[in-house]
Amino acid sequence: MKVVEKNIQEVVCDAPNSQTTGEKGLALVKYLILGVLFGIVFVKAEIISWFRIQEMFRLDSFHMYGVIGSAIVTGIISIQLIKRLKIKSIAGEEIKIPKKEFRKGQIYGGFIFGLGWAITGTCPGPLFAQIGSGFTVIIITLLSAIAGTWVYGKFSDKLPN
């Protein structure tokens, strides 16, 4: 059994949506609730803290490695269970995980993101939780991150990939 399905989507996205039926209005509330829970965990485990990211990159604390590592282990077990037990989505569809193709961007872009991660102390998820936690100046970081995304989109065909 293949763990990874071939990606047939035109748009290659890092958060692909394989559901065939559209969702609007109230159907989206479940993602809001999931997001709220996720945001609470980010704050309570102090993942949104610039200090914790500094500790991680200075190898002074196991905390962040424990968080990311145990999240991955939980994810691996969950996906294996979904595959082996052929669990379907609540809409009754077969669960698909599009394949991520290797590109040079994962090296160059990954490295560039790493530089930014250590400066800002945040990846895109915690950005939103930081703003919600009252660090409102992070709105500027968010706008700048959106600008960075836009500049990548503008020049994506000229960059090595």
């Binding site: 763990v3 990874v4 290659v12 890092d14 958060a15 990311i68 999240a71 991955i72 939980t74 994810g75 691996i76 969950s78 996906i79 995980i97 991520k100 590109r103 961007g105 994962q106 160059y108 872009g109 990954g110 490295f111 560039i112 993101f113 790493g114 530089l115 930014g116 991660w117 400066i119 800002t120 945040t122 990846c123 895109p124 998820g125 950005l127 100046v137 992070i138 500027i140 970081t141 968010l142 706008l143 700048s144 991150a145 959106i146 600008a147 960075g148 995304t149 836009w150 500049v151 990548y152 989109g153 994506s156 960059l159 990939n161």
Partner: peptide, 30 residues
């Protein structure tokens, strides 16, 4: 704020994902 945020936005899109999309979702799906 400006440089750091820009690197995060540009880098994650160039890489096709961030800690959630690659480190957690991507590695979890092997």
């Amino acid at each position: 704020f400006v440089l750091g945020g820009f690197l995060v936005g540009f880098g994650t899109r160039y890489a096709g994902g961030c800690t959630s999309g690659h480190a957690i979702m991507g590695i979890s799906s092997l």
